[in-house]
């Protein structure tokens, strides 16, 4: 289970790394999104894997922390997801703005680079 999750995080992250190293803005933004999936998952699993034990303390009385998933990593990731959307929007606007200003979608505006 742990190995499968770790492998998934690695593959998604690696795909993101490959993309952010590409020269076209759309590739970079896609890469950033993939990397943020991987990183969000990574932070999330730092609270370990729990199945069918959501952090809802519905039962009366003092809750037992051993029976509930870690709420801290979940809260961190929740805000990270929302901020991730905002930064994606910012990057997108910069991307289309740069394309309008430089006439190219190369991140360094070098059209002669055939990569």
């Amino acid at each position: 289970m742990e190995a499968a999750i770790a492998l998934t995080i690695g593959i998604v992250f690696g795909s993101g790394v490959w993309l952010v190293l590409r020269p076209r803005t759309f590739q970079v933004i896609t890469g950033l999104l993939l990397m943020s999936y991987a990183v969000n998952l990574f932070i999330f699993v730092m609270g370990r894997l729990w199945i069918d034990q959501p952090p809802l303390t519905l039962a009366p009385g003092t809750p037992d922390p051993m029976l509930h998933a870690d709420p801290l990593s979940q809260a961190l990731v929740l805000t990270a997801i929302v901020i991730g959307f905002a930064t994606t929007a910012l990057y997108l606007v910069m991307m289309i703005g740069a394309r309008g200003l430089t006439g190219t979608d190369h991140v360094d505006a070098e059209e002669d680079d055939d990569e």
């Binding site: 770790a6 992250f13 790394v17 190293l21 699993v45």
Partner: peptide, 24 residues
């Protein structure tokens, strides 16, 4: 870049797995 991507992904997977092997 492919090498770097494989390396980065592999390291990330390794690190995740290493952390999860330890008790919380």
């Amino acid at each position: 870049d492919l090498l770097l991507a494989v390396l980065g992904g592999g390291l990330m997977a390794g690190m995740t797995y290493a952390v999860m092997q330890r008790p919380a």
